[in-house]
Write a protein that binds this DNA or RNA. Structure first.
Length: 309
DNA sequence: AATATCTGCAACCGCGGGCGG
DNA sequence: GCCGCCCGCGGTTGCAGATAT
């Protein structure tokens, strides 16, 4: 337990003095809060933990009260954004699959830049992620095949269905079929109605939406997000003083592809890569080792997030 | 190796809708 | 109906890292 407390306290200190996140930077104008003492820019792991702990206890919403009740020096808007775009349970990060790409392309063609509406069909992705992916990847891809779009006789969906996406000709079959069943003034409701009576991709997606396991306030999922932050710090600490185990595997599968990966860590101010970070199990294992087996499973979580116990 | 340019994406801003007083 | 507050959305910014020169 002492080791665990040491871990948490050290984490707090390290995250403040040597944040793995980039230092706070200036961004745009300052209306959300021109008030003194309101912090902006990237969130630190410490802030993330405070926010997640609070939301776990009180649930999301009433964002205005969050900064007051947590002591976070952030405006309510920033808290909400951090939660919905990053810390919220069930968020999938990393590369978009061809399936997801197809969904986005076709939904964008149908709905326009209604990212929130599009995101409802990709429950694991945030509207911000989808928007970013569209602006940085898909727009360019589609541009390459823009010449057919100059033909005004051709429906938009037909143009898009001609895009030679690697392995998902399924897009053409499924989506355009649905699209042709309706006129050009489709809206979200029409799509839902269609999908509910078909066995296509939309319906599969919708069935997921109707059983949104990810929408429940699953602490485990939320903890996974936070665990990423912790693990990054732990990697960094390991590099500096070597007091963490160099390998941990579960079910015979190594959590780290290489020793170098584990020891790599991040330089101060280096930007964090969220994709390649292993789960909370590493933290559990280390706490267990350090505590002689006294801290494990839920106890681990209680140590890291004492407010939840 | 040094510098310039490009890319990805977290976080910001302003606007508008919903709601209660 | 008006006002203020809260929240969600879409567009934009600016930095870090990657890539090109």
């Amino acid at each position: 337990m002492l080791a665990a407390l040491f871990l948490f306290n050290t984490f707090r200190q390290v995250s403040v003095s040597h944040p793995p996140y980039p230092m706070q930077r200036k961004m745009g104008r300052h209306p959300c809060s021109d008030k003194e003492g309101i912090k902006k820019g990237p969130w630190t792991p410490e802030e993330d933990i405070i926010l997640v702990s609070y939301i776990q206890e009180h649930g999301p919403g009433n964002w205005r009260a969050v900064p007051t009740n947590t002591g976070l020096l952030r405006c309510s808007k920033s808290c909400r954004l951090r939660w919905t775009n990053y810390l919220r349970p069930g968020i999938k990060r990393g590369n978009f699959t061809p399936h997801e790409e197809g969904m986005i392309i076709h939904l964008q063609a149908l709905l326009g830049n209604k990212w929130a509406a599009i995101a409802t069909y990709l429950p694991q992705r945030t509207d911000n992620d989808i928007k970013n992916y569209w602006n940085t990847h898909l727009k360019k891809k589609l541009k390459k095949f823009q010449s057919p779009l100059d033909n005004p006789q051709m429906p938009v969906s037909d143009h898009i269905s001609t895009v030679p996406y690697n392995n998902h000709q399924f897009m053409s079959k499924t989506y355009t079929t649905h699209h042709h069943e309706q006129n050009s003034t489709n809206d979200e409701i029409n799509i839902k109605n269609q999908s509910s009576s078909s066995s296509g991709l939309f319906s599969r997606q919708l069935s997921h939406e109707q059983n949104p396991s990810s929408s429940s306030s699953s602490y485990a999922s939320s903890a996974e997000n936070i665990s990423r932050l912790l693990e990054t710090w732990m990697k960094s600490s390991n590099r500096e003083n070597g007091e963490f185990p160099t390998e941990f595997s579960e079910n015979g599968i190594s959590r780290f592809s290489t020793d170098q990966e584990l020891k790599g860590g991040f330089e101060h101010g280096e930007r964090m890569k969220m994709d390649s970070i292993p789960p909370l199990l590493f933290l559990e294992k280390w706490l267990m080792d350090e505590s002689g087996g006294q801290v494990e499973g839920d106890s681990c979580m209680n140590v890291v997030f004492p407010s939840l116990s």
